[in-house]
Simulated assay, not measured.
Amino acid sequence: MKGFGTFAIIVGVCWLVFALSMDVSVPTGTGGRVNNMGLMADRQIHTIVGGMIALAGLLMVLLGGKSTSPQAAAETDTRPCPLCAETIKRAAIKCKHCGGDVLPALSAHVPLMSGWTVRVECEPWAHAEATRSVKRLGLPTTKGSAKFVAVGPFASEAEALGARENIRSVSDLLGDIHIVAPDA
């Protein structure tokens, strides 16, 4: 909305410049010039139209704050199904498209500092691709090392086991379950 408002301001100002630079006089037969009432009325109309467009654009810029549309809210609350890649809710445990069981994705707002993780072993040159594969499944990752990707942490061992099975079923990546103790 703000972009359209800026465009309207520019159009309105250009229209005003055009209107105010209009010549409203016509030549007379004796070598002089006289104002024409019809041209003066046209300049007045163009000035009003340009001013209204610029004012509308200014209002759009000032009042057109960020709106949270339902579509934008839905996009942040969804993820691709790890089995069929169709869009599903982030908290879904069963895909409505393929019927497959999936793990609910953890909320990005409350990261766990300790819990169960899945360490997916990988070569240093394949680390980035392994991380992308795990993230495509909607699973959280934490800082690992060049030799493994740490998936999680999860609140329970059962969640970590489910994540490991989910990773195995979709990709050729293998992982081990580990527990991460809270920092002391």
Rank of each mutant, 00 (worst) to 15 (best):
A126N: 03
V11G: 07
G29R: 01
P111M: 00
I45T: 13
A146N: 08
G162K: 03
L173A: 06
G100K: 07
A160W: 08
E165H: 08
V180E: 14
K89R: 13
N36I: 01
V61S: 06
A130D: 03
I177S: 06
A19D: 08
K135C: 04
T131R: 12
G99L: 00
K89V: 10
L62I: 15
S171F: 11
L16Y: 11
G65H: 11
R136W: 05
A85F: 08
E165V: 06
R33W: 13
M52C: 15
D183E: 14
L137W: 02
H46T: 00
S169V: 03
R33A: 13
P182T: 04
S169T: 03
S67M: 12
A41E: 12
G64I: 07
A146Q: 14
C98F: 03
T117Y: 00
A91W: 04
A128D: 10
F154C: 05
T68W: 09
T28I: 04
V24F: 00
C98R: 02
V180Y: 00
K2W: 09
K135F: 00
H97N: 05
T141S: 03
V151K: 04
D172W: 09
R132K: 13
F4I: 12
R90S: 11
R168S: 10
G144P: 07
V110S: 07
H127G: 01
K94S: 13
P104L: 02
R132L: 12
G138N: 04
G51D: 13
A130C: 03
A19I: 09
A85H: 15
L174S: 15
T76H: 02
A19S: 13
P140K: 00
P82E: 05
S25N: 07
G31S: 01
R33E: 06
L62Q: 11
A128W: 00
A181Q: 12
A146T: 10
S67L: 13
G65E: 14
G64V: 08
A128I: 02
A155N: 08
T78H: 10
L174E: 15
G31A: 08
V49Y: 09
S171E: 11
I53E: 05
E75C: 00
G100F: 05
N166T: 15
C14R: 03
L59W: 09
V120D: 02
T87G: 02
I177Q: 08
T141A: 02
K2E: 14
L62P: 05
L112H: 04
I88M: 09
F18K: 03
R43M: 15
S21G: 10
P82H: 09
W116F: 15
V110Q: 05
K2S: 11
V34Y: 05
V61D: 03
N166F: 00
L55E: 08
F148G: 03
M113S: 13
M113N: 14
E157G: 03
A184V: 06
P70T: 00
A92D: 14
R168L: 10
K96Y: 02
V149P: 15
L55M: 15
A126R: 02
V13P: 10
V170Y: 05
P182R: 05
G57W: 07
P153V: 01
N35M: 01
G162Q: 10
M60E: 01
P182V: 02
C95H: 06
A184R: 14
T68P: 00
L63V: 12
G50S: 09
D101R: 12
